[in-house]
């Protein structure tokens, strides 16, 4: 299976199952498009007719291009078959090892954002803070169920985790105390709304947090539309100076600013560029996921605008990079050469299997998006996963469990998408959230185009340095 598209002056052909990416000219693009459904004579006739005014497109040129296409097909880099369905079955039998936990250290928040999937941090339940004892047991559970895996991840999440900051620090200290003797390495992430960020938080996070996620939606009026405190005041003016200080202090360490866009700001690149111009260089912006009748829900009419926005973003990022002022965007951060193996691409985020969420009371859920839904409680940090049927359901929840994905060219980039989004949109974790699929495919086209652009620019620079007079 292949996928062909043109974007920003590039003609691109993806071979879905091998992962191969080809940048081609117009003739090759058309030949590849006809290759599987036409005879050689039909292709030659069609190309000679289409390019009759082109002196460089001759019968011999077309034959040569056809030979190149056939060579790539034989090398398994074009029109390759899908050999992974069987691997997916093997992978479903994988062990029950856990490698990542989302620790809900606070089911409480000092902001009152109306679009919050977590119901202002309470997850439809009572306010609560995780005790050190529950968190310690969660870390012991993770170490005890991680098998031979060395790298373990813990996200401090909420609500607002800084409302329980002392417990966060104590849990980090405990993890550092035990990781050596168990041959483990903990990588911590902190997600915060910024209200309680101060110098002490910055210093500790820079010492211990592998990544920091800072919640900002963009322009002041966009941010303050939803991200307000309990008296209704916007939080933009309060958090921006703190986050800027935090981001600068991170240096080379990972952080990213994460916003949410809604129907009210489909021109979301304006928000990203606003953040970039403030000085934030590592950005992410997620489409809101909510009930279709919610006023902030994205609509079908928004889609063409959003597609254009993603293209604008990709082109602007390339421009800024050429000017030596690069910014990153989470969804465009793909690594074609050293990217994930096929097992990762089949299994995705690992929710419900190798990735679990822990509530302040120690209950286990498939991920943070399922917390608060009693039907998805899987066990607790003392007894482990007791609902093994649910774990098995999530083990089978991969791209090959979704018939809708069978004909999708992006299936090995998204692994079938987010189980929680599918559950909320289609009523089943093995369903699909079609609106999200459309946005995802557009983002991948843009991300791959950027990789092609950078590759060609590098090749051109190398050629010029080898032959400076050319």
């Amino acid at each position: 299976m292949i996928h062909q598209y043109k974007l920003n002056g590039y003609s691109i052909v993806l071979d879905v199952c091998s992962g191969a990416v080809h940048a081609v000219d117009d003739l090759a693009y058309d030949i590849i498009g006809m290759y599987e459904g036409s005879t050689q004579d039909e292709i030659i006739s069609a190309m000679l007719a289409k390019y009759a005014d082109r002196t460089d497109v001759t019968g011999n040129e077309i034959l040569e291009c056809l030979a190149d296409v056939e060579a790539l097909r034989e090398a398994g880099k074009l029109f390759s078959e899908d050999p992974y369905a069987g691997k997916a079955v093997d992978f479903q039998r994988k062990s029950n090892e856990v490698k990542a936990l989302c620790l809900h250290v606070a089911h409480s928040c000092n902001l009152n954002c109306s679009y919050c999937f977590a119901s202002q941090g309470k997850y439809k339940g009572e306010r609560a803070l995780m005790s050190f004892e529950v968190g310690k047991q969660a870390l012991d559970f993770l170490v005890g169920h991680s098998g031979k895996r060395v790298n373990l991840e813990v996200d401090f999440f909420g609500g607002e985790p800084l409302l329980n900051w002392n417990v966060v620090k104590d849990l980090v200290a405990y993890a550092r105390e035990i990781e050596g003797r168990h041959n483990k390495k903990f990588r911590f992430t902190l997600t915060t709304n910024g209200v309680l960020v101060d110098d002490e938080v910055i210093e500790f996070a820079n010492r211990e947090m592998h990544n920091v996620v800072m919640s900002i939606d963009g322009r002041p009026e966009v941010h303050d539309r939803f991200r307000v405190d309990y008296s209704g005041r916007g939080s933009y003016e309060q958090i921006i100076p703190k986050f800027l200080k935090f981001a600068r202090a991170r240096g080379e360490r990972d952080y990213y600013v994460r916003g949410t866009y809604t129907h009210h700001n489909v021109d979301f690149t304006e928000d990203l560029f606003h953040l970039a111009d403030l000085g934030f260089t590592r950005l992410s912006m997620e489409p809101v996921v909510c009930a279709p009748d919610d006023p902030c829900a994205l609509t079908d009419e928004d889609l063409p605008v959003l597609f254009e926005q993603y293209e604008i973003l990709a082109k602007e990022m390339l421009r800024r990079e050429r000017e030596g002022k690069p910014i990153t965007f989470y969804h465009y951060m793909i690594d074609l050469e050293h990217g994930p193996c096929i097992y990762k691409r089949i299994s995705g985020c690992g929710s419900g299997t190798e990735y679990l969420a822990v509530t302040p009371w120690g209950d286990l859920y498939p991920c943070h998006q399922f917390v608060g839904d009693d039907a998805y409680r899987m066990g607790n940090v003392w007894d482990g996963v007791t609902n093994t049927e649910m774990r098995d359901e999530f083990k089978h929840c991969n791209v090959y469990a979704r018939p809708e994905c069978a004909d999708c060219w992006a299936r090995l980039y998204c692994s079938g998408g987010c189980a929680a989004n599918a559950y909320h949109a289609a009523g089943s974790i093995t369903g699909t959230y079609e609106y999200g699929c459309k946005l995802f495919r557009k983002r991948m086209e843009c991300a791959i185009m950027m990789q092609v652009a950078k590759y060609q620019e590098t090749m051109k620079e190398n050629a010029e340095s080898m032959c400076p007079d050319v």
């Binding site: 199952c17 091998s18 992962g19 191969a20 990416v21 080809h22 940048a23 081609v24 000219d25 003739l27 090759a28 291009c65 190149d68 296409v69 790539l72 398994g76 880099k77 390759s80 050999p83 992974y84 691997k87 090892e97 490698k99 990542a100 895996r149 060395v150 790298n151 991840e153 990588r187 074609l336 050469e337 050293h338 990217g339 994930p340 193996c341 096929i342 097992y343 990762k344 691409r345 985020c349 690992g350 190798e354 990735y355 090995l412 990789q451 092609v452 590759y455 060609q456 090749m459």
Partner: peptide, 26 residues
């Protein structure tokens, strides 16, 4: 100019043999 330029990518089929350690980030 070559009409088809293949970008360097990880071979997914080979990664079925060399991959699967589970040490990557989630």
């Amino acid at each position: 100019m070559k009409r088809i330029q293949t970008i360097e990518t990880r071979d997914l089929k080979k990664s079925a043999v060399t991959g699967g350690c589970g040490e990557c980030q989630t």
